[in-house]
Structures are given as structure tokens and as C-alpha cells.
């Protein structure tokens, strides 16, 4: 029996219920996970609204007339690739590898920005064709749902810049590592939301 065991080093063979308080990074990740799930609940409400209103086009354009599958495929590829580079960035952070961290962050940021640019271009094109959010309930629901995801991506990009500034000034302090861990959870979570978006909105929407 050892009296030198510290929090975070849980001896083998002791049940989790008797191992004492969990390490802080686990508690932090759990709290952030709860936030992400509450975000999922919010998105589920927007998804429901979209699914209910998808045929309420008020004589305006339908999804099949508006959506361009090629740009959606490119957006999907950008977001998936940025999720991957975010994972590579987490590995570099584990190893305290500064160049790898910056490269991974730069790739994640560039791919996320490309995604946003394509999405905003699509929005601008729709609004120019008199298919803005005020045209019909279908388009209101569409812009709310997809725009909310776009806002999350924007917030993630700002967060990534802030985190890189913290890495530059404070190095790999424990608190910075925990924040980076939360960021990567957030970024992967956005990709899961996008999977449902392109499935429900774009792929089902272009079917006759």
C-alpha cells in the first residue's frame, strides 16, 4: 500500500468508485461534453423545425432547385479534413511539439475558413436569387439551421486563434492543454452536426 499516490495516478486493481476524485482533465472534458450535448438538443429543435417546414415553400424555390451538390461535397471534404488535421494537432499537443501544433492549427483553420467561404458564397447566391430567409418558411428554417452551424464554425475559428495565442504566450500549461482538448471536442462535434446537415438538408432535399 502506497501513501504517495497522488490524484490522477489511480493504482490498478482499485474500482473506479473507490479511486477518489477524477483528474481535472477528465472532469473538464465531462463538463464540456455536457455542454456539447445541450448544443445537440438545440440543433435537434432546428432540425425538427426544418423537417416540418421543408415542404412549406409558399410557391417559392424548393431545395432541389437551390442546392448544388458539388459545393456541398467540397464543403463536406473540407470539414472532414479539418477534423482530421485537428486530430493531428491534438497528437502534436500531447508531444509538446510546437511546430506540429502550429501546422495542425493552420491546416484546421484554413480548411474551416474554406468551408465557411463556400457556405457564405452559397448563401449570397441564394439571397441574390430572391431565395433569402424571408421568402418562405422552408428557407427560414434552412437559413436558421445551416446558419447556426456556420456560426458555430466561426466561433470555433476564433477560438482556435485564441488558443494558438495562448500556446505562443503560455506554452503547454495544463490549463492551456485542457482548453485545447475542449476545442478539439468542439471541432469534432461540429463535424457530426454537419454529417446530419448534409444528409437531411442537402442529400434528402435534392431528391424529387
Amino acid at each position: 500500500m502506497s501513501l504517495t499516490a497522488t490524484i490522477g495516478d489511480i493504482p490498478r486493481g482499485i474500482p473506479a468508485s473507490e479511486a477518489g476524485p477524477a483528474p481535472k482533465r477528465i472532469v473538464v472534458a465531462y463538463g464540456f461534453w455536457i455542454f456539447l450535448l445541450s448544443d445537440v438538443v438545440m440543433f435537434s429543435a432546428f432540425f425538427s423545425a426544418y423537417a416540418v417546414l421543408v415542404h412549406a415553400t409558399a410557391g417559392g424555390p424548393t431545395g432541389a432547385q437551390l442546392f448544388n451538390q458539388v459545393s456541398v461535397a467540397i464543403e463536406t471534404a473540407c470539414l472532414l479534413a479539418s477534423s482530421y488535421t485537428c486530430g493531428l494537432m491534438s497528437i502534436a499537443i500531447t508531444r509538446h511539439h510546437r511546430l506540429g501544433t502550429y501546422l495542425g492549427a493552420a491546416a484546421t483553420f484554413a480548411l474551416g475558413l474554406a468551408f465557411l467561404a463556400i457556405e457564405l458564397n452559397e448563401f449570397a447566391g441564394m439571397i441574390a436569387r430572391d431565395a433569402g430567409p424571408q421568402r418562405s418558411s422552408f428557407l427560414s428554417a434552412f437559413f436558421t439551421l445551416v446558419g447556426c452551424h456556420g456560426l458555430h464554425v466561426t466561433a470555433g475559428l476564433v477560438w482556435l486563434i485564441v488558443m494558438m495565442a495562448q500556446v505562443a504566450t503560455r506554452g503547454y500549461a495544463a490549463v492551456v492543454q485542457r482548453r485545447l482538448q475542449c476545442f478539439s471536442l468542439f471541432w469534432h462535434f461540429l463535424d457530426i452536426i454537419w454529417v446530419w446537415l448534409f444528409t437531411v438538408v442537402y442529400l434528402m432535399g435534392v431528391r424529387p
Binding site: 477524477a22 491534438s90 500531447t94
Partner: peptide
Amino acid sequence: TSYDRAPGDQS
């Protein structure tokens, strides 16, 4: 020792 892992935990 064994280490706990949370989602996304790379540390």
C-alpha cells in the same frame, strides 16, 4: 499506474 481517458483526451 493506469491513466484515465476522457473523450478527445490526448494528454
